[in-house]
Amino acid sequence: MGVEQKLGNMGVVTTSLEQAVNWARTNAMWPMLFGLACCAIEMMAAQASTYDMSRFGMELMRASPRQSDLMIVAGRVSRKMAPVLRQLYDQMPYPKWVIAMGDCASCGGVFNNYAILQGVDEIVPVEVYVAGCPPRPEGLIHGIISLHEKVKKEKLSKWA
């Protein structure tokens, strides 16, 4: 880190490539516009003016999985929806992350029955679980910030 002290007044900052890439990834993480149930309404609330997720570089919700980095599974996943969800996940380009928003997506929630997947982590790898039924928008934002912290610690080799 000695270089900054010498070059600092020339407007140059040195860092590792890993840190620079991870910083860039956290600040423009586009979530997929993909709502399932009740949590989707709270996800919309988190997008709207009161909570405003665009503060974290997330003002763009992409309806196409091909253009998104983050899948927020907002709501319960039924057995009929599970293959669709997996296909959407497969269509997302690397690097990609998944947030399980709410109790139903995390563990099945109150619906412990034949129709609901007991946690979306049965079909896709989940990075962050957000508790609540449904979680408040603040809860979702906390989950996203936690994901950002996690991404900042990632190794480049993970997605190579």
Binding site: R86, G108, N112, N113, Y114, Q118, D121, E122, I123
Partner: peptide
């Protein structure tokens, strides 16, 4: 038709049920 009830995980049976869970 059964309800399709999944066993609830407690500390004593956590690992046992965890092994049986489907994984991606």
């Amino acid at each position: 038709y059964p309800l399709g009830y999944e066993e609830i995980q407690y500390t004593f049976n956590y690992n046992e049920i965890n092994l049986r869970k489907p994984r991606p």
